[in-house]
Design a protein around this nucleic acid. Structure first.
Length: 447
DNA sequence: GTATGCATTC
């Protein structure tokens, strides 16, 4: 006679009803504080005991942990478990999986998960739209957003927050304004700070700095993101004085409720300094960030500082700054220096920066374009020719950017294009009829 | 008890 031994002790079998919720509470807690190893170990212990010691909630929490850490290897195993244990029909699991696939940059599977859902709601739609935004496909995100409305499904404030983010990435001011209007008309909707922050960001990124300021002023309870968005908005529009005045206002407890700046705030502040070559101020803010606010500078901050030193013409200082960084410099930093060398005609430094860039195996035509231009400006034609040949080997087509005004939603750029960029021939085709015979002449190689 | 969101260097 076959006797099946229980995998768990009898006492534990009886306490199943209690241990499961308790272990799930622990899992949830670990995931919440990002104690991933602890969560994974706990999950492993549970599953070793018996598959009946976990349920759909346990899997949901552990998948969320994988999402937070972009853990493909673990994630795949948990998805297998979801299928094996028969939890795939649960909408919460499905939505979490869209999120997970998005985090591991697997849009195809995120979309397939969505397609296979028999029942979808505003949350699952928003999860997919957000997946496209986070994977640099703002056009597809907006397409989905429109599709959702076509199906008469009302977006909630989260959907609109994400859609506005897509508009910001595209520079799609008209769509952004349309959403703004939609928000104002919709009296029933919950409107929270994230939504207004996203709206403010959309206006700054679309270049409507006046409406951005109005939006900023209309937000009564601002958080650090609100302030940072406005500071960065002024910075990218070259209004350094306004940006720095805002930073002062933000940190001045006498004027406003004091908000503590974070790393991102300082990126905006340093950008402001760099755009008007305020070298000493930039250095002061950089040091203040480290010593007064105990914030660790990241690539973005080093990038701003290199840019700042370069714009001020202190190329050697910029190079020393890069070499003295506590972490390994990335390609962007060397490329900033290379660009500056081109403006100043510093061949030796340019060659050094170019050599550093080759180590990154990033084959960008632009780097050789700069080298070619530097050699040409000095009349060193043989080297110019070599650089030019390297460009032609790659034959990367260039594209131009154009403002299409009220028709932007009709002529939006294809996903994969640079933000703010519409392929010029698409616009010309639309405006002047089919000119496909001419469009290839607009393909440049980069000049 | 469970799923969706805002600000970041060229």
């Amino acid at each position: 006679m076959f006797i099946k031994f229980p995998l768990t002790k009898p006492s534990e079998i009886h306490s199943h009803g209690k241990t499961k919720p308790r272990s799930n509470e622990m899992l949830k807690g670990y995931v919440k504080v990002n104690a991933t190893s602890k969560a994974l170990l706990l999950f492993r212990d549970l599953i070793r005991k018996s598959t009946s010691s976990i349920d759909s909630f346990s899997l949901l929490y552990i998948i969320n942990a994988c999402t937070r850490n972009s853990s493909r290897h673990e994630g795949r195993q948990f998805i297998t478990l979801v299928v094996k244990l028969g939890y795939m029909h649960i909408i919460f699991i499905q939505t979490s999986l869209i999120n997970y696939y998005s985090a591991v940059a697997n849009l195809a599977d995120a979309h397939q998960m969505f397609d296979e859902m028999p029942v979808r709601n505003v949350v699952s739609w928003t999860a997919l739209i957000s997946a496209y935004v986070h994977n640099q496909k703002p056009n597809s995100a907006l397409k989905l957003f429109r599709e959702m409305q076509m199906k008469n499904l009302d977006p909630d404030q989260v959907t609109l927050t994400v859609a506005l983010s897509a508009c910001a990435d595209l520079g799609a001011l008209d769509m952004g304004k349309w959403i703004h209007n939609f928000i104002c008309r919709n009296k029933k909707m919950n409107k929270d700070l994230s939504l207004y922050n996203s709206l403010l960001n959309m206006y700054t990124k679309c270049g409507d700095i006046e409406t951005a300021k109005k939006t900023f002023d209309s937000i009564k309870e601002k958080d650090v993101t609100t302030w940072t968005s406005m500071i960065t908005g002024y910075a990218i529009h070259g209004q350094a004085k306004e940006a720095l005045a805002l930073f002062t206002a933000m940190t001045d407890s006498k004027i406003h409720t004091k908000i503590v700046p974070n790393e991102v705030t300082f990126v905006g502040v340093l950008m402001a300094c760099s755009h008007v070559a305020m070298v000493d101020e930039g250095k002061r803010y950089f040091n203040s960030m480290i010593h007064d606010y105990k914030l660790k500078p990241r690539f973005a901050h080093f990038g701003c500082m290199v840019d700042l030193l370069c714009r001020a013409g202190c190329l050697q200082d910029a190079k020393d700054f890069i070499l003295k960084m506590p972490m390994k410099p990335n390609a962007v930093l060397w490329r900033t220096l290379l660009g500056a060398c081109s403006n100043c005609g510093d061949i030796e430094l340019a060659e050094e920066a170019r050599a550093r860039l080759i180590e990154f195996e990033e084959n960008l035509a632009g780097d050789d374009v700069i080298m070619g231009n530097i050699y040409a400006s000095r009349g060193i034609w043989d080297k110019k020719e070599t650089a030019r040949n390297r460009i032609n080997e790659r034959r990367v087509p260039g594209c131009s950017s154009i403002e299409v005004g009220s028709k932007i939603s009709e002529f939006v750029a294809a996903d994969g294009d640079h933000p703010f960029v519409c392929k010029i021939y698409e616009v010309i085709e639309s405006l002047m009829g089919n000119m496909s015979g001419y469009v290839s002449s607009f393909d440049a190689y980069d000049t």
